[in-house]
Amino acid sequence: MPWRRWRTVVVTGAVLVPLTVATGCGSVDERRTAALDAALDFERAVSARDGAAVCGVLAPAVREEVEQSAGTACEEGVLEEDVPSVEGAGGRGAGVDVYGRQARVEFPADTLFLSRFSGGWKVVAAGCTPRPQRPYQCLLKGG
């Protein structure tokens, strides 16, 4: 008898965990809006050449990669990168695809990949261009 009770708890728990994960991140529209907002924050910071703000939107691994490759603080090193700016876009022309905790935001001049962290959406790759039958080529990405 005790074994059956334990098995029921395990099966119930296995069913509830995916539901919690799937619904815990908000609706698709909420996630899409939040990812676009983070992407726009990144693009505005790039346009303004505000290194601190750019680094504030980058995922930790991307910040570390920028610092290692530039040999300087992220705030300085990220401004040396030639990430395209979508100044004045205001979200117009942006395509946003959200898959759970991952998102792709496509602007006419740039594509960003984002991931949802405990502190919000962060850019995990930027300055990305598609390549036929191959992964995107990105100027900024984590190591």
Rank of each mutant, 00 (worst) to 15 (best):
A61F: 08
L58N: 01
A35I: 06
V46S: 05
A48C: 09
V57S: 09
E64C: 00
V62M: 00
G56A: 03
D37H: 14
D41Q: 15
V54P: 08
E65D: 15
D41T: 06
G56T: 00
S47K: 06
C55A: 05
F42N: 04
E64F: 02
R63G: 02
A48M: 12
V54A: 04
G56Y: 03
R49L: 11
A52D: 12
R44F: 15
D50S: 12
V62R: 00
A35P: 13
R49T: 12
A59F: 05
E43Q: 14
C55S: 04
E64K: 05
L36Q: 11
A38C: 03
A59C: 05
A45Y: 10
L58M: 08
A35K: 10
E65M: 12
V62F: 00
V57T: 14
D50A: 13
E43R: 08
E64I: 00
P60M: 03
A52G: 12
S47A: 15
G56K: 01
D37V: 13
A39H: 01
G51K: 09
G51E: 11
S47L: 08
F42C: 04
L58Y: 01
V62Y: 00
L40M: 15
E64L: 09
F42H: 13
V57K: 03
G56I: 00
A53N: 04
P60S: 12
E43S: 13
R63P: 03
D50E: 12
R44V: 14
V62H: 00
